[in-house]
């Protein structure tokens, strides 16, 4: 009885506003943790998702339509292939020549744009990599890892195919084995 009394006294002395504040704070903290866990479990963006606009600054020596950066929103009406890579990434080397070859195949038509986003890399090594594989399509650093966070990439290489309406159509995790593999994904997206 006395214990009950003591408990009741204790409960009575905590003001209501303090209780609301404590429980509100705890729930808020739990919500933040839950949001973080959900994001961590989400995986990459999925086909069917509309990709929000982003800006890719280009390495010097690269340009797109005379500009030193590329805005995704300006590429509506074209099929966009965005490849995440890094100079320290060995599997990226396996597909570098295939990507460049596919880009050269579509370059003249103007319907397809290839973009290279250099992930968590150092510029001298990145430039060396680009020279080594003679990569000519627009390439730039993923500054602050903003673009890779937008796509929620899990590693490199990863390649995303966005249709003319800005909707993601295909995600390639890991390197391509051949140019044909790349073209087999792009060609249906070009069909009227």
């Amino acid at each position: 009885m006395e214990t009950m009394q003591a408990e009741q006294t204790s409960k009575r002395t905590i003001p209501l506003w303090a209780q609301v504040l404590i429980w509100g704070g705890l729930l808020g903290l739990l919500a933040v943790l839950a949001w973080g866990l959900v994001r961590a479990q989400q995986g990459t963006v999925q086909p069917g998702d509309t990709i929000p606009d982003f800006t890719l600054p280009l390495f010097s020596g690269y340009e797109y339509n005379g500009q030193s950066e590329v805005h995704l929103s300006e590429l509506r009406g074209k099929v966009v292939v965005i490849n995440f890579w890094a100079s320290w990434c060995k599997p990226c080397e396996q597909e570098a020549a295939e990507l460049e070859s596919a880009w050269r195949h579509y370059r003249e038509s103007g319907d397809v744009v290839f973009l290279g986003a250099d992930y968590v890399d150092t510029e001298p090594e990145a430039r060396q990599y680009l020279r080594r594989f003679d990569i000519t399509y627009p390439n730039g650093p993923d500054k602050g890892t903003k673009i890779s966070q937008l796509f929620r990439i899990k590693g490199v290489p990863e390649t995303y195919f966005i249709d003319r309406q800005g909707v993601l159509r295909y995600v390639q995790i890991g390197p391509f084995r051949s140019e044909d593999e790349i073209r087999a994904i792009i060609d249906p997206l070009l069909a009227p």
């Binding site: 890094a86 100079s87 320290w88 968590v120 890399d121 890892t145």
Partner: peptide
């Protein structure tokens, strides 16, 4: 380095960290 989570850069053995 974001590539090698939970490993400080000074002891990380990967190529990316060596470059950093």
């Amino acid at each position: 380095c974001p590539v090698c989570e939970n490993t400080p850069l000074d002891v990380c053995p990967t190529e990316a960290c060596r470059q950093w």
